[in-house]
Amino acid sequence: MTSWRSLSRTKIVWPLIALGALLLLNLFFTPHFFRLEIKQGHLYGNLIDILKNVAPIMLLSIGMTLVIATHGIDISVGSVVAVSAGAVAILIGGDLAGHPKYPIAVAMIAALLVCTAAGMWNGMLVSRVRMQPIIATLILFVAGRGIAMVFTNAMVIWLYAKPFAILGQGYVLGIPFSIYIVAFVLLLTFIFTRRTAVGMFIEAVGINPTAARFSGINAKNILFWVYTFSGLCAGISGLIVCSTVMSADGNNAGNLYELDAILAVVLGGTSLNGGKFYLFGSIVGALIIQTLTTSIYAIGIPADVSPVVKAFVVWAVCLMQSERFRTRIVRVFVRKGLSA
């Protein structure tokens, strides 16, 4: 009992329970949901689809976690995904024979640089100009799509350069390649924030920037680099999005991803008020969102009802996260138990 109590206080437990519940639901409602086969030399099944399709949101949520920990928000990430996709697509070019205009590695690095610069722009506005984060990032939220459209000339660019497909469609040891990218970024971020003092600095800035400054933390630079990192994550995410469908669509690539990323962070237990952050919680949060989407397709819930189902699940998970709600529920049950 005591061990359950201490466990239930760790933030990661509740999102894990929600994820487990979703998977359990599929066990009953979707035959073959957990079936894994080997097709064309890699694993094939709904679970693999979830892993493959969740990668872009996971990457965004890693960057977003740090931003939210500083009591900020970055709503430009969806647009930056489109910028990244547009930049890499225009540099690789839509040659039908698959000959890239510039080497694929060069195109990818260039796209990442553009997105890092976008992150720096956000970081500069928030840390130096001291704009409110939602307004500062609103600029690129709007302008980002415009930039992407300029890159792609407002057309959908289809890519035929095969090696670029590895990013979003390749497999290593039977598992989607994109998941390795996420694991790599996650690991680096974890080491950098949790094995050094950087994570604590970020949390300190999120809780009270003035106090953080007085205790010798360079709050301005922390803010600047956190937004820059979020831009870089969005850039990597955009490369995967582009590679998954081998096309760049300035209008639709990464559309509303910022909301999914924010939701993943919140589902993972990080408060929008800043302070303590939970990287692995955000990863689980992203998994919940994608599992939900894939389940809706697999169960065959009609298109016009599925947003309601999504809304309900999100609502339920958020309630589970609330400590006050949980204690109320427990109290109700305890009272009933006493009167019986």
Binding site: D49, T244, V245, N252, A253, T294, Y297, A298
Partner: peptide, 13 residues
């Protein structure tokens, strides 16, 4: 295209 791909993946499973 990305949504179309995801949905088709689920259909095929």
């Amino acid at each position: 295209s990305s949504q179309g791909k995801q949905v088709m993946e689920a259909f095929l499973k």
